[in-house]
């Protein structure tokens, strides 16, 4: 084996070694959203859970305890959700019918229109298998239009965030519901203790100094 051959092999080995952390760490920002089989698998797991052969048949299954449910029965299995809506026309504002749907971070802060996410007519339901909103491909077909590198996991963010303290949220998004009440009781608790404490202290301080003639 001559010298240059050896050098060639060594540098090749170094290159391969250098690629191992890059492939396994998941920190390769400029590549596609999925870097290894293990990661691809875990990301799919976080978006869904039910497969027939390789095809996901039941999107929106919960994975972690406290995850948003998204399991309510909806009309979303159809290619055109408005197929039965009598007065529907693509010209009417979405919010004139879906009154509360504009209350979300994207519409309020990002000035994003409904159509930038839900697309042109016909608007397909999220559970329609071929819909861009189907959680198999929502990350790529919807979120990634603006959020470069969006993963299925990222797409589990609940865009239309329910009112955190609402009774319904307890089943639809338990973690949000309990975090809300945890923080609320923390805030109330702190002030219930320290507000009267401060007022009493203030009064006592006043009287005490008055007696001392200060």
């Amino acid at each position: 084996m001559n010298g240059s051959h050896l050098m060639h092999n060594v540098s090749r080995l170094l290159l391969v070694l250098a690629m191992i952390p890059a492939c396994t760490s998941g920190w390769v920002f400029a590549s596609t959203d999925v870097t290894t089989d293990a990661r691809r698998y875990s990301l799919q797991e976080s978006s869904s859970g039910y497969y027939e052969d390789d095809i996901e048949v039941m999107p929106h299954k919960r994975t972690l305890p406290g995850s948003p449910a998204n399991t309510t029965k909806r009309t979303g299995r159809y290619a055109d959700v408005h197929r039965l809506v009598k007065d529907y026309s693509g010209k009417i504002r979405c919010t004139s019918c879906h009154v509360n749907k504009a209350d979300n971070l994207h519409t309020v802060r990002g000035n994003i229109t409904c159509r930038q996410c839900h697309g042109l007519d016909p608007i397909a339901g999220a559970d329609f298998y071929y819909a861009p909103m189907n959680s198999i491909r929502k990350h790529a077909y919807v979120c990634a239009k603006c959020h470069q590198g969006a993963t299925p996991s990222f797409a589990t963010f609940v865009v239309h965030t329910p009112a955190a303290g609402d009774a319904k949220t307890r089943s639809s998004f338990p973690t949000l519901y309990y975090s809300h009440y945890l923080m609320l009781f923390l805030i109330i608790g702190v002030f219930v203790v320290f507000l009267p404490h401060s007022i009493l202290w203030w009064i006592r301080d006043w009287l005490m100094n008055k007696r001392r003639g200060k």
């Binding site: 969006a150 996991s153 990222f154 963010f157 702190v190 002030f191």
Partner: peptide
């Protein structure tokens, strides 16, 4: 948010936003 969603499910961002706000309101008041 994108990097976070590699380690945690994306819906934890909903929680993060709520906690960040609530804690800030508590601290400031």
């Amino acid at each position: 948010p994108i990097e976070t969603s590699r380690f945690l499910p994306g819906w934890t961002l909903n929680i993060a936003l709520l906690l960040h706000r609530a804690e800030a309101i508590l601290a400031i008041s």
